[in-house]
Amino acid sequence: AKPPKTVTVKVEVTNADGETQTRTVTLTNLPKDLKPGDTVTLPETGQTARIVEITP
């Protein structure tokens, strides 16, 4: 079996106070056609994050 493909992405997350924070997260099994501006759900927090940058 192939190991899951991990991708490092820079995302913007809005916290409970309405502040936008930029975080770098490593995600696995992202859709192939994901692009900056799309939103993903962070598995560890369940927060919705907007992708700023994808590092191949």
Rank of each mutant, 00 (worst) to 15 (best):
residue 27 L to I: 09
residue 32 K to A: 15
residue 43 P to T: 06
residue 9 V to F: 05
residue 21 Q to H: 14
residue 23 R to F: 15
residue 16 A to E: 13
residue 35 K to I: 05
residue 32 K to V: 12
residue 13 V to R: 01
residue 41 T to V: 14
residue 55 T to V: 15
residue 5 K to P: 10
residue 49 A to I: 06
residue 11 V to S: 00
residue 44 E to I: 10
residue 12 E to T: 09
residue 54 I to T: 02
residue 50 R to G: 02
residue 10 K to W: 08
residue 51 I to R: 00
residue 35 K to N: 05
residue 10 K to R: 10
residue 15 N to R: 05
residue 34 L to Q: 02
residue 30 L to S: 09
residue 46 G to C: 05
residue 26 T to Q: 11
residue 29 N to E: 07
residue 43 P to H: 06
residue 20 T to W: 07
residue 37 G to K: 01
residue 31 P to R: 12
residue 16 A to C: 08
residue 14 T to E: 08
residue 33 D to T: 08
residue 47 Q to E: 15
residue 38 D to T: 03
residue 51 I to W: 00
residue 51 I to E: 00
residue 21 Q to F: 14
residue 10 K to L: 15
residue 53 E to Q: 07
residue 42 L to N: 02
residue 49 A to Y: 07
residue 38 D to E: 03
residue 7 V to D: 03
residue 41 T to F: 15
residue 8 T to W: 11
residue 6 T to C: 09
residue 30 L to W: 15
residue 47 Q to F: 06
residue 33 D to M: 06
residue 22 T to G: 03
residue 38 D to M: 09
residue 43 P to Y: 05
residue 15 N to H: 05
residue 55 T to Y: 15
residue 27 L to C: 09
residue 10 K to A: 03
residue 56 P to K: 08
residue 39 T to R: 07
residue 30 L to R: 04
residue 28 T to Y: 11
residue 17 D to Y: 11
residue 35 K to Y: 06
residue 24 T to K: 05
residue 46 G to A: 03
residue 36 P to W: 04
residue 8 T to I: 14
residue 31 P to F: 14
residue 22 T to I: 15
residue 40 V to A: 01
residue 52 V to D: 01
residue 32 K to R: 11
residue 20 T to F: 07
residue 3 P to S: 03
residue 1 A to W: 14
residue 34 L to M: 08
residue 12 E to A: 07
residue 45 T to M: 03
residue 9 V to I: 11
residue 51 I to K: 00
residue 23 R to W: 15
residue 24 T to Q: 07
residue 33 D to H: 12
residue 2 K to I: 13
residue 39 T to W: 15
residue 55 T to H: 14
residue 37 G to F: 02
residue 54 I to W: 04
residue 50 R to S: 06
residue 15 N to F: 10
residue 45 T to A: 03
residue 28 T to L: 10
residue 42 L to H: 02
residue 3 P to W: 08
residue 48 T to W: 06
residue 42 L to C: 09
residue 21 Q to W: 13
residue 51 I to T: 00
residue 9 V to N: 00
residue 31 P to W: 14
residue 42 L to V: 04
residue 53 E to A: 09
residue 12 E to D: 04
residue 43 P to I: 08
residue 21 Q to R: 07
residue 22 T to Y: 15
residue 44 E to S: 09
residue 16 A to D: 10
residue 36 P to G: 02
residue 48 T to K: 07
residue 28 T to Q: 10
residue 55 T to E: 13
residue 56 P to H: 14
residue 20 T to H: 05
residue 28 T to G: 07
residue 30 L to I: 13
residue 49 A to H: 03
residue 18 G to L: 02
residue 18 G to K: 02
residue 56 P to Y: 15
residue 44 E to R: 06
residue 6 T to L: 10
residue 8 T to D: 05
residue 18 G to M: 03
residue 10 K to E: 03
residue 47 Q to I: 06
residue 3 P to I: 04
residue 10 K to H: 04
residue 4 P to D: 11
residue 31 P to D: 14
residue 20 T to E: 04
residue 8 T to S: 08
residue 42 L to E: 02
residue 45 T to P: 01
residue 13 V to I: 14
residue 49 A to V: 13
residue 35 K to E: 04
residue 17 D to C: 08
residue 44 E to P: 05
residue 44 E to W: 09
residue 41 T to A: 05
residue 18 G to V: 01
residue 51 I to C: 02
residue 27 L to T: 03
residue 16 A to L: 08
residue 13 V to Y: 15
residue 38 D to N: 03
residue 42 L to S: 01
residue 50 R to I: 15
residue 17 D to S: 10
residue 6 T to N: 10
residue 40 V to Q: 00
residue 15 N to M: 12
residue 32 K to L: 12
residue 2 K to R: 12
residue 14 T to F: 09
residue 37 G to T: 01
residue 20 T to I: 13
residue 3 P to A: 04
residue 49 A to Q: 00
residue 14 T to C: 07
residue 7 V to L: 11
residue 5 K to S: 13
residue 56 P to R: 06
residue 24 T to G: 01
residue 14 T to V: 13
residue 39 T to L: 14
residue 53 E to C: 06
residue 26 T to A: 06
residue 49 A to G: 12
residue 22 T to Q: 11
residue 25 V to N: 00
residue 23 R to G: 03
residue 2 K to M: 13
residue 41 T to K: 08
residue 46 G to H: 04
residue 40 V to D: 00
residue 2 K to C: 10
residue 12 E to Y: 06
residue 56 P to Q: 12
residue 3 P to Y: 08
residue 21 Q to P: 01
residue 41 T to S: 06
residue 32 K to C: 08
residue 14 T to D: 05
residue 16 A to K: 10
residue 15 N to Y: 08
residue 4 P to N: 13
residue 5 K to N: 14
residue 37 G to L: 01
residue 12 E to F: 06
residue 36 P to A: 08
residue 27 L to V: 05
residue 7 V to A: 07
residue 12 E to G: 02
residue 36 P to C: 07
residue 51 I to D: 00
residue 53 E to G: 04
residue 11 V to Q: 00
residue 13 V to G: 01
residue 51 I to P: 00
residue 42 L to A: 01
residue 37 G to P: 00
residue 48 T to Q: 11
residue 49 A to C: 05
residue 39 T to F: 15
residue 55 T to M: 15
residue 21 Q to V: 15
residue 12 E to S: 08
residue 18 G to F: 02
residue 14 T to I: 13
residue 23 R to Q: 12
residue 45 T to R: 02
residue 34 L to D: 00
residue 31 P to C: 08
residue 2 K to G: 12
residue 35 K to V: 07
residue 7 V to Y: 15
residue 53 E to I: 03
residue 7 V to S: 06
residue 55 T to P: 08
residue 23 R to T: 10
residue 17 D to R: 11
residue 51 I to F: 04
residue 49 A to N: 01
residue 27 L to F: 13
residue 38 D to C: 02
residue 52 V to N: 01
residue 46 G to E: 04
residue 33 D to K: 06
residue 18 G to Q: 02
residue 36 P to Q: 05
residue 16 A to F: 08
residue 12 E to M: 11
residue 55 T to R: 11
residue 8 T to R: 09
residue 17 D to Q: 12
residue 25 V to P: 00
residue 4 P to V: 13
residue 34 L to W: 14
residue 48 T to V: 14
residue 24 T to F: 14
residue 53 E to L: 05
residue 50 R to A: 04
residue 15 N to S: 11
residue 35 K to R: 10
residue 33 D to N: 11
residue 47 Q to Y: 06
residue 43 P to R: 06
residue 48 T to I: 14
residue 38 D to V: 03
residue 26 T to Y: 12
residue 19 E to F: 10
residue 35 K to C: 04
residue 42 L to T: 01
residue 50 R to K: 14
residue 54 I to M: 06
residue 16 A to G: 09
residue 16 A to V: 09
residue 43 P to M: 06
residue 41 T to E: 08
residue 6 T to A: 12
residue 43 P to N: 05
residue 29 N to V: 05
residue 5 K to R: 14
residue 9 V to R: 00
residue 46 G to M: 04
residue 51 I to M: 01
residue 47 Q to A: 05
residue 35 K to S: 04
residue 3 P to R: 04
residue 49 A to L: 05
residue 23 R to V: 15
residue 17 D to V: 09
residue 40 V to G: 00
residue 52 V to H: 02
residue 47 Q to S: 04
residue 32 K to D: 14
residue 21 Q to S: 12
residue 23 R to D: 03
residue 25 V to F: 10
residue 20 T to G: 03
residue 41 T to R: 10
residue 25 V to L: 13
residue 49 A to M: 04
residue 34 L to N: 01
residue 19 E to T: 15
residue 21 Q to M: 12
residue 35 K to H: 06
residue 48 T to H: 07
residue 12 E to N: 04
residue 40 V to T: 02
residue 53 E to M: 07
residue 1 A to P: 13
residue 13 V to Q: 03
residue 4 P to T: 14
residue 56 P to C: 07
residue 24 T to M: 12
residue 52 V to W: 02
residue 28 T to N: 09
residue 15 N to W: 05
residue 31 P to K: 13
residue 47 Q to K: 04
residue 49 A to P: 00
residue 39 T to E: 09
residue 3 P to T: 03
residue 31 P to N: 14
residue 22 T to M: 13
residue 36 P to L: 13
residue 27 L to Y: 07
residue 1 A to Q: 12
residue 40 V to E: 00
residue 6 T to Q: 12
residue 4 P to H: 13
residue 2 K to H: 14
residue 11 V to Y: 10
residue 12 E to W: 08
residue 13 V to F: 15
residue 15 N to A: 08
residue 14 T to S: 06
residue 2 K to L: 13
residue 6 T to M: 12
residue 31 P to A: 11
residue 52 V to E: 02
residue 56 P to E: 13
residue 28 T to V: 12
residue 23 R to E: 07
residue 23 R to A: 09
residue 7 V to E: 03
residue 16 A to S: 12
residue 2 K to V: 12
residue 48 T to G: 04
residue 12 E to I: 11
residue 29 N to W: 10
residue 40 V to C: 03
residue 2 K to W: 14
residue 15 N to P: 02
residue 40 V to N: 00
residue 52 V to G: 01
residue 7 V to H: 09
residue 6 T to R: 13
residue 25 V to W: 10
residue 38 D to S: 04
residue 38 D to I: 03
residue 38 D to H: 03
residue 15 N to Q: 07
residue 48 T to M: 10
residue 23 R to M: 15
residue 14 T to Q: 10
residue 17 D to A: 11
